[in-house]
Design a protein around this nucleic acid. Structure first.
Length: 440
RNA sequence: UCCCCGAUAGCUCAACGGUAGAGCGGCUGACUGUUAAUCAGUAGGUUCGUGGUUCGAAUCCACGUCGGGGAGCCA
């Protein structure tokens, strides 16, 4: 006989007046003499179950008394509307079946510190806010993939174990690879997805990426998930249009389908509702001017000379000037990755852009038009001090039917943190990997 | 790697050179409408580690360990 429930809590209203069996965990319990309130959590929602001593057998009442926080159980009762119940419906209990009585649960409704919660991450994911955040993350991922699929993109998965640094200098995680020496965990799928682009035209890769940077901020993880579209024949302009449509579609879908989660997260959604194309754009040159004029607006923000990359305080200042995401485009070529196409009118800047989320959530997308000329690409590889032999396969993409093409990478955790309005991105992934934390 | 901050009961914190405490959680009991219930009682401590200063150290000093916030780099 199946142990599965006969109804789920998120759609319990459909069962008003019916007797159903729910299966889940005790989110909270209050005993009041001959009356016990059990708030049951089934993964889809939470419902209050009311056990009256007079309405149930002694065994059932005793079972309800045994339930501790997070105990697993199956509860049978009739669904009724009641204004006193959170959510408007409650279960008038007729039977309680204990599946497992939980040991004393370490996470209480009271406050806990970051260290304690991170050490109990495997349990913390059950908590309402974490549940909402991870549900929102799943929606961001589904929205991103389904939107790209609908636009004719093909998912083209790229390797995680790679022979060399895709972008060169950044720190990489290395591991032994049999007799072939060291392998590195991919820090991006971009170079490989370009091979897919030459096969399918419009592709994207989606998966975990790894950076062994010793970053210790609320915007960094050593393992994070990135979705990276790449489009043949697309130039810089088309790339930006694709990005603003993509991001808007994701945000609007989250607003539609995750309203309950955003409410639990106490997210003010008015700024998200404004997130529609076109997004404002500012060139790197104008950004430098803006920083020179307004750097005192943001703490720790100092003027920078032309050629230097923007820091976190600079991004905060720029984003604060706009009410929706903003593109910062045409960075100095020398400060960017080797594969970015120089602006034909001004080779000292590249046809690239970062998309900064509003409200100080920082860079959520980095993208560019890629160099499609084999000679220029090889020259740039040498200028970056990289080994040309390692990139022969990548140069081949420019030798056999090369076309102008563009793409970008969006960080799932940063995007989710922005939409959720969550301060630290560690809460937007189930098990964050950080500089000083790998457990659990 | 650098700068700043912290570590005391299961959790969140107080005690700031002189007897180690509270709230929550746990346990026991009361209660037919609780929403982090309320009320009464009760158990619970190697004050992160090592060394030093002192009549006396949770408290001051040094080193170490672990963690938090930020920078650089990036998504």
């Amino acid at each position: 006989m199946s142990l599965l429930p006969s109804a789920s809590i998120n759609t319990i209203a459909r069962h008003e007046g019916e007797t159903v069996t729910l299966a889940g965990w005790v989110a909270n319990r209050t005993e009041k003499g001959k009356l016990i309130f059990i708030r049951l959590r089934d993964g889809t929602g939470v419902i209050q179950c009311v056990v009256f001593k007079r309405n149930v057998s002694d065994e059932t009442f005793a079972a309800a008394q045994r339930l501790t926080l997070e105990s697993a159980c199956r509860i049978t009762g009739s669904v009724r509307a009641d204004a006193r119940a959170p959510g408007g419906f409650e279960l008038d209990v007729s039977d309680v079946e204990v599946v497992q009585v939980a040991a004393e649960y370490p996470i209480t409704p009271k406050e806990h510190g970051v260290e304690f919660l991170m050490a109990h991450r495997h349990l913390w994911v059950r908590s309402a806010k974490q549940h909402a955040l991870l549900r929102l993350r799943a929606e961001v991922i589904a929205a991103a993939q389904e939107w790209l699929n609908a636009q004719g993109f093909i998912r083209f998965d790229t390797p995680i174990l790679t022979p060399v640094a895709a972008e060169g200098t950044s720190n990489l995680f290395a591991t032994e690879y049999f007799d072939l020496g060291r392998a590195f965990l991919a820090q991006t799928g971009q170079l490989y997805v370009e091979a897919g682009m030459m096969s399918f035209g419009k592709v994207y890769t989606f998966g975990p990426t790894f950076r062994a940077e010793k970053s210790k901020t609320r915007r960094h993880l050593t393992e994070f998930w990135m979705i990276e579209p790449e489009v043949a024949f697309a130039g810089h302009e088309e790339n930006l249009v694709l990005q603003e449509q993509f991001v808007s579609a994701i945000v609007q879908r989250c607003l539609e389908r995750c309203a309950a989660e955003l409410q639990i997260l106490e997210r003010d959604t008015t700024s998200l509702e404004r997130c529609l194309p076109p997004f404002p754009r500012i060139t790197y040159d104008d950004a430098i001017d803006l920083i020179a004029r307004r750097h005192t607006d943001v703490e720790g923000c100092s003027p920078i000379p032309w050629g230097e990359d923007l820091g976190a305080p600079h991004e905060t200042l720029i984003a604060s000037q706009y009410d929706r995401p903003v593109f910062v485009e045409r960075f100095p070529t020398a400060a960017k990755a080797f594969y970015m196409e120089p602006d034909p009118q001004r080779p000292e800047v590249a046809l690239c852009a970062d998309l900064l989320a509003p409200e100080g959530y920082g860079e959520i997308i980095g993208g560019s038009q890629r160099i499609h000329d084999a000679d220029l690409l090889e020259q740039r590889i040498r200028e970056h001090g990289l080994n040309v032999d390692d990139y022969q396969w990548y140069l081949d993409l420019r030798r056999y039917g090369s076309v102008p093409h563009s793409g970008f990478g969006m960080g799932i955790e940063r995007c989710t943190a922005w939409i959720a309005g969550t301060h630290h991105i560690r809460e937007t992934i189930a098990f964050p990997r950080m500089l000083y934390r790998m457990y659990p």
